[in-house]
Design a binder for these strands. Structure first.
Lengths: 344, 344
DNA sequence: ATTAGCACTCAATAACTAAGAGTGCTAACA
DNA sequence: TGTTAGCACTCTTAGTTATTGAGTGCTAAT
């Protein structure tokens, strides 16, 4: 167990390092207001803290730098919930005051603002629409070979897909088909659409439409994609370039390639427990993120967790500020989305 | 006027520098197969070429490096139209063989492949849909306050926009309204839509629908955006990181910030004459692009120039290869788009 | 238990050196 | 007269050596 004084020193070291990105020495520490004892004492304490694994030296005679364990302890126990500046607060509130009613735009904008407020990279996932219900399906013929299928969900999500019509398909039958589909499918959750088409609607279509098999297969396939449409949005992808730990182009490259590799990002963004999660350095299980921390927050519609918003920064990150901001975004997003979309 | 021998030397210098990114000296030049004269002779010729401004030294006793004027001459007069490797050719052809019928996806994919083939950054603009005609307009109510307007063009382009309904608006009237709009507006070019709504349709709506003024204003505004929907697509945004001229993070940052500043990119991508245009270094009028060349190619539907596809690389770029590739993309895109969309 | 003092370590910087690639010029050559 | 061999000179690069300064650990005094 750490003594009060060790905690104080650990905290001050981390705060200082987060701020200046330079190893912290005993002498400079002793000059801080909150430190009332001498540099020699600090050296002794630091030696202990190092032995316990909370701080490290970059070389034998250097100042100390927080270790991952140190950051972890800091995040878990030492974080003072920082209150945000008025300006920042207002900026965030202003997004949610704007009349953006399209879920995706809202989320996208959140990522952008979040990256601007933090100077790190922000990533947003979602919102998941799997529980959304079909509101309308429409098939618009473009010419003899092509039609475009459009579906609208009850949350206002629109997706469209081009369909190549089977040869010699009668365009006039498209309308009939759309009517049948709407009759039968409006109100059905998107995830069940494909099933429902095959189980119930296909036979019905067969009674009215020639070539119904080909086209309903096409349609079912197109619709199928809709349910997995969680999207990733980025803000400040290149913000990391201004962090001193990324003055090396090779590091930048490997970092950017992780960020841009969507499958990995999906994995990292999904399956987070409700609330805020902090992953520090190697906790991310990704060598390119060794010097990064990744903080995620979930947001919901009602009680349904529908997405995640996250910040990726150097391990030397302003945890307190980022966590406060994420918390705010998470709550505001949840509140707004819930208000708008819960009871349709 | 340059002598044959000077041209040869200039060409070999540039080819070598493009390949190895190192100043080229007289001795190493003299070892090349195509060079039959001594290094001393080369030195004399190089002195002349330098005086004429085609090559430069990086310091008093260094080898020579092409100047902008040198590149310009090279591009204008020395470029041997390189034939592409079979693999590359096949890769390109394969995109256009795939059954992608959505314009934007096609263009997007082109940018991606182009960046992969060149290892530079590829940018695509378009396709412009201003001449597209309205195929269908649909208004789907979501609840009492919100509806979603969807328009489809004859090229299969779909755009949607949320509309906040005026309070106490009767949802049933939306359908009436959509019918009127479809009656009157199908076949109208998108650019004329707004005008047409105000001039012809508003009065008609007034006869049938309460609150017609608010909602038609809303609608006209939404539709208005559609006409300027040329989009930018990127491929290989971070490819420049692997170019030796961008080993410095500051340069990377300023370059990326130019690339990501869409208004500037729009300007650079628009208003290019038909065919291929090469801008070298400062010809780009942008200090962050001083060490870059920017090659654009236009593509069309029929005779209508509808977009641009471009490559941004270091001035030390494989001009020949890039130009060949762009030429190919430009032609294939034009051919495919023309086939698909000209006569609808 | 704390701290002043001191010897020691190591990174960073600057100053110097040697090697090597390249140039320009001159004089000899075909 | 155009070409080339030869040579002195220049400048970068890489390696070596001091020098400085921030920092540490340890010891002994308070």
């Amino acid at each position: 167990m750490l003594t009060e004084r060790q905690l104080l020193i650990l905290q001050v070291i981390i705060d200082d390092f987060i701020r200046f990105a330079q190893p912290v020495g005993s002498r400079s520490l002793s000059k801080k207001d909150e430190i009332t004892f001498s540099s020699a004492t600090i050296r002794n304490e630091m030696a202990d803290l190092e032995e316990l694994g909370f701080i490290e030296k970059t070389h034998t005679s250097s100042g100390r730098v927080p270790s991952e364990k140190g950051y972890r302890y800091y995040v878990d126990h030492l974080l003072s919930p920082q209150t945000l500046k008025k300006d920042d607060l207002q900026l965030v509130k202003s997004i949610f005051a704007e009349r953006i009613y399209e879920l995706e735009k809202l989320v996208q904008k959140s990522a952008k603002i979040l990256s601007e407020l933090t100077n790190y990279t922000a990533i947003a996932l979602g919102p998941k629409v799997k529980d959304n219900k079909l509101r309308k399906i429409q098939i618009v013929p473009l010419n003899n070979e092509t039609a475009i299928a459009i579906i609208v969900t009850d949350t206002g999500y629109v997706q469209n897909k081009m369909i190549q019509l089977p040869p010699s398909f009668d365009i006039n039958e498209l309308e009939k088909m759309a009517n049948i589909l709407n009759d039968r499918l409006v109100g059905v959750p998107l995830t069940d659409l494909k099933d429902k088409i095959y189980k119930e609607v296909v036979t019905l279509l067969g009674q009215h439409i020639r070539n119904y098999d080909v086209i309903s297969a096409l349609l079912a396939e197109s619709l199928n994609n809709v349910s997995k449409n969680e999207k990733l949005f980025y803000g400040g992808k290149t913000n990391m370039l201004s962090q001193p730990e990324f003055h090396d182009v090779d590091k930048v490259r490997s970092l950017l390639s992780v960020i841009e590799h969507e499958p990995d990002m999906y994995k990292m963004m999904r399956q987070n427990p409700a609330g805020i999660t902090v992953k520090i350095g190697r906790e991310n299980n990704n060598s390119a993120l060794e010097n990064c921390s990744f903080i995620t927050a979930t947001y919901s519609i009602g009680k349904d967790q529908v997405g995640t918003i996250a910040v990726l920064g150097p391990t030397r990150m302003e945890y307190s500020r980022v966590i406060s901001l994420l918390d705010m975004f998470s709550h505001d997003l949840t509140a707004l989305l819930t208000r708008l979309y819960q009871n349709n």
